[in-house]
Design a protein around this nucleic acid. Sequence first.
DNA 1: GCAATGATACAG
DNA 2: TGTATCATTGCT
Length: 201
Amino acid sequence: MVRLDYSFFDRPTLNVSRELLGKKLIKIEPDGNCLSGIIDEVESYIGSEDLASHARNGLTQRTQVMFGSPGRSYVYFTYGIHWMFNIVTEPKGVPGAILIRSIIPTEGLNTMKSRRGKASTGLTDGPAKLTQALGINKDWNNYNLCDSNSSLYIEDLGTATPQSVSAPRIGLGKTPEPWFSMPWNYKIIKTQGLGSHLSIR
DNA sequence: GCAATGATACAG
DNA sequence: TGTATCATTGCT
């Protein structure tokens, strides 16, 4: 079991995105409790030119983290309710981030369930669901995931990177082309009968 | 189908 | 200082 370090994230965003699938996201609670899940779906936001990215407006107070060092977290609040967890990529000065959209829970299920509430469906199968289950909020923004004693990090299980499909990103609203259709959403293949618009990697 | 609920960014 | 816009979710 190896903790992913700076060199893993300091590479082209799409490579990092695809290889992040099948890796384990781990959060150690203050009481020592371990919460974890296998990364199942991610989405890339690359460069200032990407009009779907928060970095489209250039360097601002909110987006400065995206321009910073790779291997750190970019956590932001949206829709007045939800926290989104991203991992910064690209060299310092170049904005880039990967939104973690879905994980398959592996450890700490009871804690996750209690945080999600029993009326809700799906423990961690949505970007805001997993932040709620793991307890990720603004306190975790600009957190160094690569530090050897960090409480939030990604682990390489040593398994081969799973097969994935790429598709256009989700929830982009009025983002103009070509950005709206860029196939920068990656997901682990697990069902048959995929739509023909999806390309298998 | 749509309300919830607030930070952000930009116009003026 | 006002307001349009959201990288969503869950209930109707």
